[in-house]
Design a protein around this nucleic acid. Structure first.
Lengths: 111, 111
DNA sequence: CGCGGGCCATACCGAATGGGTATTGGACGA
DNA sequence: TCGTCCAATACCCATTCGGTATGGCCCGCG
């Protein structure tokens, strides 16, 4: 269970369909579908019921949804806290992230 | 910032040295060292000060430490809640995780 | 003062992860 | 029955990631 898994899960839960969630997350449907399946496998139980027109949250899924959102928001908090806390000792304006061994530095554009 | 990053960070913070943390996490030192460096790069600021005998938490590091532990514990909670909640609709005893596309199913032995 | 042992960082390589395209199969509505 | 929307699978390639080997630094001890 990684944070990416949780984001994927939340997106699918909220969109009610892998395809739509995939568009929302800017990935294609199959990887996302696999990710959900992998998450369910890891947890040892299904989170969704596959219907003809999408994915419907199961009980376990509901249980997870709240917690997942909670966790993701804490992560966001941590990120911004760190940003705020930014370099009280030795600052360095963002923009130069000197990531030696690639770390994509992704930007979230709001389309 | 992934959960693995956070675990790594916490381990290093608590052990005070990458090498010891690496042993604790059952990985070798270089990947862990890289992971910390990557995390710092991603956050845009150092979390540790490298001294001759280990890693010393910086302010930003302290800030992160609490939050990281909090997040990790929530994740654990989610896991056990899911386990408890286990398959009220359609059970399936653990042991068969049918993970199609490898998901290592790691077991944490307590050495 | 040189040697040994602790530490972290880098270089390099091979295995595993992960995303993308193409495709299949089921369910529904026109 | 056909067209559409859905998720799952098969396959392939790029990227990520961990391990080994190595280097450089700093300290304490003989």
């Amino acid at each position: 269970m990684s944070l990416v898994d949780l984001e994927a899960f939340v997106a699918v839960a909220e969109e009610g369909a892998v395809g739509r969630a995939a568009r929302r997350l800017h990935v294609s449907q199959p990887p996302l579908s696999r990710r959900i399946a992998g998450l369910e496998a890891e947890l040892g139980q299904p989170l969704f019921r596959r219907t003809a027109r999408g994915m419907e949250l199961l009980d376990a899924g509901h249980e997870l949804l709240g917690r997942a959102k909670e966790i993701l928001s804490r992560v966001e908090d941590a990120r911004s806290a760190l940003r705020a806390h930014s370099s009280i000792p030795g600052r360095a304006p963002p923009g130069l992230r000197h990531a030696k061994r690639g770390r994509a530095d992704e930007v979230d554009e709001g389309d």
